[in-house]
Write a protein that binds this DNA or RNA. Structure first.
Lengths: 224, 224
DNA sequence: CGTCACCTCACGAGAATTTGGGAGGCGGCG
DNA sequence: CGCCGCCTCCCAAATTCTCGTGAGGTGACG
C-alpha cells in the first residue's frame, strides 16, 4: 500500500524522539538529519512534553514516526501511546528499549506500537528502521519478531488435543461465559443433573477439578 | 537464551528445502553450502516427499531449519506443517513465498511457522535469515512484520483498564491457576476469610459473579 | 444384533463458593 | 489529624459445585 520506491530520496519523514537519556537523545536527533533523508524535528526527555507539543502542532507538521524510549521512567511511554494515537493516528510509533522480553513486547504492540528496537542497534540500523516504519513496515529484530510470532501463534493455534463431544463443547462455552449450572440448564432446557454429568465428563477430559481451571485451559488452548 | 556468538562460525545448521520450482530449488540448495556455514542436506519438490524423508530420519540428522515454499501446489505446504512439528519439534520452519498478504502470513504462523521470506530476497538475506531462524529468531521483512503486528494488535487490544490492588492481582493469578480458596489461603499463609474478602472485591471490580467468569475476563484481557 | 459413544435424568453427601454484614490496623495524603 | 484505600480477619446463611453411582434411550457401526 505504501510503495514509494522513487520518492524515498525526496521525502523526509518527520521524526520525533522521546528519550530521557540526554546524550542518547542528542545522538538520535543528530542521526535524523536531512543527509539521511530524515527530518528530526523534535526531541523530548519525557512523554508528557511530547504529548504537549503534539497537541499544539498543526496536522501537516505532525510526525510520521515517533521513536520512543520506554525504559526506566515507569510506564509513561506506553501509557502515552493511546494519546499519541488519538492525536496523530497516522504516526508510526517505534519503541526504543534496552529490554527484549515477551511481556514488554506484547504490551507495546497491544498499546499500538508498530516497531521495536533495541538500543544496541547500530546507527545505520536505526535510520533504516525509521525509514521502514515511515514506509508502513514494522522494524524489529528477528529475536523480537520471534516473540511476536510466538504470541500470535499462541493466540491463534486452533489445536485441541482433547476430543469433546458437541454437547460438552457447548457446555464449555457456556461455562466460559460465566454461567452457573442452573443457568446453563435453563438455557439448554435440560435438567441440571444433565449439566452436572456433562460437567463431570468435561472435567475428566480436561484433567481439571474446577470450573475456573476448565475456563483457564479452554481459553489458553483456544477451544472456545 | 540462544546466544552463541563464537560458535556461529563452527555450527552448520542442517537445512532442508521444499520448493517445486526446479531451478530455484537447486539454487537454494547451492546457497546452503558449508562455505556459508550451512548444511543444505536435502531438497524436495513437494511436502509429501519431505515428510516421507522426515519419518525415515534419525533424530540427530533432523533438520534444524526447514525452508518451505507454499506457492501454487495447493496448501500442501501449510497442511504439512503439523506433521513437521510432530516429527521434528525443534525444527524452525521458514516459509518461502512470492506473496506477502495478511491472510497467508496469519495462516502460516498459526500453523507453526517461525519465519516468512519473500522470494525476491537477495541470496545473502536468505542465508542470513536461515541463520537467524536456527538461532531462534523469526526472520521476516518489516512489511511482513507489520502484518503480524497488526494481527496481534487486533487480537489483544480490548484492554479495559481495571485497577487491582497487588494482593487482588495475586489472587487473580492464583484463581486462574485453578486453585481453590483454601489452597490460596495456604499458599499465601492467610485465613480463608481473607481470601473470601479479596475475591469479593475482585469480583466487584471485574464485574463478574463467579470464578469462572473472572478467569475468562482475566485471560481474555491478559491481566495475568 | 451387540457394542459403543452420546445425551439424558436421578439421588445424595460433602466440599466449596457466593453474599451479606462488621471490624481493626496500617500507611499515604491533604 | 482525618480520610481513604488496602490488607487482614470473623460470622453465617444460601447457593453452587464436585463426585460418587446408576440407568434409560438413541443412533452409528461392524
Amino acid at each position: 500500500m505504501n510503495s514509494l520506491p522513487e520518492s524515498l530520496h525526496t521525502i523526509h519523514p518527520i521524526v520525533w524522539i522521546v528519550e530521557d537519556h540526554d546524550l542518547l537523545r542528542k545522538n538520535l536527533k543528530r542521526l535524523c538529519s536531512p543527509s539521511r533523508n530524515l527530518n528530526g524535528a523534535e526531541a523530548f526527555a519525557n512523554a508528557e512534553a511530547m504529548l504537549l507539543a503534539l497537541r499544539q502542532t498543526a496536522s501537516r507538521d505532525l510526525p510520521q514516526v515517533l521513536l520512543m524510549d520506554v525504559g526506566l521512567p515507569g510506564r509513561s511511554g506506553l501509557e502515552a501511546l493511546p494519546d499519541v494515537i488519538k492525536l496523530a493516528p497516522e504516526c508510526r510509533v517505534v519503541i526504543l528499549t534496552v529490554f527484549e522480553d515477551d511481556r514488554k513486547i506484547s504490551a507495546a504492540i497491544s498499546a499500538g506500537a508498530c516497531g521495536y528496537l533495541v538500543k544496541t542497534a547500530r546507527p545505520e540500523e536505526i535510520v533504516e528502521a525509521i525509514h521502514e516504519a515511515a514506509r508502513g513496515g514494522s522494524p524489529m529484530s528477528p529475536k523480537t519478531a520471534a516473540s511476536v510470532v510466538k504470541l500470535l501463534a499462541n493466540l491463534t493455534k486452533p489445536m485441541t488435543p482433547v476430543s469433546l463431544s458437541p454437547r460438552e463443547r457447548e457446555m464449555l462455552a457456556l461455562i466460559v461465559e460465566g454461567l452457573t449450572a442452573k443457568e446453563i440448564a435453563d438455557r439448554l432446557s435440560v435438567s441440571i443433573h444433565t449439566i452436572d454429568t456433562h460437567t463431570r465428563h468435561l472435567f475428566k477430559k480436561l484433567e481439571v477439578r474446577s470450573r475456573a481451571a476448565a475456563v483457564a485451559r479452554a481459553l489458553r488452548e483456544r477451544m472456545v
